[in-house]
C-alpha cells in the first residue's frame, strides 16, 4: 500500500514544496524578528515530523523484536535514518534563528537541547547498525525502543533544568496570516516524510531480495 502511493506522494510533495515558498513569502513580517522568522516555517514542521518519526521507529522496532517481522525492521531503519535527517534540518535551522534572536549560534534552550538529544539517540541507533557486526539489527531495535520511551524523560528533565535559569526569549505567538502557511508546511513535511519512508523501505526490500538471490546463486554454484 505504502509502495503504490509513491507516485501520488511524489506529485503531492513536489507541489507542496513548490507552493510553500510563495505562501511563506506572502505571510506577514514578524515585527521584531523580521525576515529570519520565516525559518520557523521549515524549522518547526521538521521538528514535529522528527518526533513522529522517532515514534514510528520505536514502534516498528518493538514489532521487529517481538514478532521477528523483517518488514518492521526495514521500516525501523528507514525511520531511524529519517529521524536523523529531520533532526539535522532542525539543528541547522535552529542556530540560524538563534543567531538573530538571541545573538548566539547555540543556546541551551529546552527544545533545541531535547532535539539534539533525540538526534543523538537515533544517530547511535544508526552507528550500531553500521559498526555492530552480525546481530546488530536487534541491538539497534533495542536502542530505538529505549530512545522512544526516553523522549518524555528527556523533555521533562531538560525543561526543568532550563527553567531554573531566566528565560531568554519566548517563541513569538503566531499572528494572523502566519497560521495557514505554518499548517501548510507541516502537511508538506508530512508528505515528504511518508514519501521518503516509502522509498527507503523499498530500497531495503530490494537489498533483501538481492541478498536472497545472492544466496540462491551461491547455493546453486556450490551444489
Amino acid at each position: 500500500m505504502l509502495q503504490r502511493s509513491v507516485p501520488l506522494l511524489l506529485v503531492t510533495t513536489i507541489a507542496a514544496f513548490s507552493v510553500a515558498p510563495f505562501l511563506i513569502h506572502n505571510a506577514p513580517y514578524e515585527s521584531t524578528m523580521g525576515l529570519v522568522q520565516k525559518i520557523f516555517y521549515f524549522h518547526a514542521p521538521a521538528g514535529i515530523v522528527m518526533f513522529l518519526s522517532a515514534f514510528v521507529c520505536g514502534i516498528s522496532s518493538a514489532i521487529f523484536l517481538f514478532r521477528g517481522r523483517q518488514g518492521a525492521d526495514r521500516v525501523a531503519v528507514a525511520a531511524a535514518e529519517l529521524t536523523v535527517l529531520l533532526g539535522t534540518i532542525v539543528l541547522a535551522t535552529g542556530p540560524l534563528w538563534a543567531r538573530k534572536a538571541w545573538g548566539v549560534w547555540w543556546q541551551w534552550d529546552a527544545r533545541l537541547t531535547s532535539s539534539l538529544l533525540l538526534w543523538m539517540m537515533f544517530t547511535a541507533c544508526l552507528l550500531v547498525r553500521r559498526y555492530g557486526g552480525p546481530g546488530s539489527d536487534k541491538l539497534a531495535a533495542a536502542v530505538a525502543i529505549f530512545g522512544m520511551f526516553n523522549v518524555p524523560f528527556v523533555y521533562v528533565s531538560v525543561n526543568v533544568w532550563r527553567t531554573l535559569h531566566p528565560k531568554t526569549t519566548v517563541v513569538p505567538m503566531l499572528g494572523p496570516g502566519m497560521r495557514e502557511p505554518f499548517w501548510f508546511c507541516i502537511l508538506a513535511f508530512l508528505s515528504l516524510y511518508v514519501l521518503l519512508l516509502a522509498l527507503r523501505v523499498r530500497l531495503a526490500e530490494q537489498q533483501a531480495t538481492l541478498d536472497a538471490r545472492y544466496l540462491e546463486l551461491d547455493d546453486r554454484a556450490s551444489a
Binding site: A124, P134, L139, A142, G147
Partner: peptide, 26 residues
C-alpha cells in the same frame, strides 16, 4: 542490558558509551 547485548558485537568497547550516554542523559 546494552553491555550484555554488546558482548557479541564488534567494537563493543566503543559502542557501549555511544549507546549509553545519549539514553542516560536524563
Amino acid at each position: 542490558l546494552f553491555a550484555a547485548m554488546l558482548v557479541r558485537a564488534r567494537s563493543r568497547d566503543v559502542l557501549l558509551p555511544v549507546l549509553l550516554y545519549p539514553i542516560t542523559i536524563p
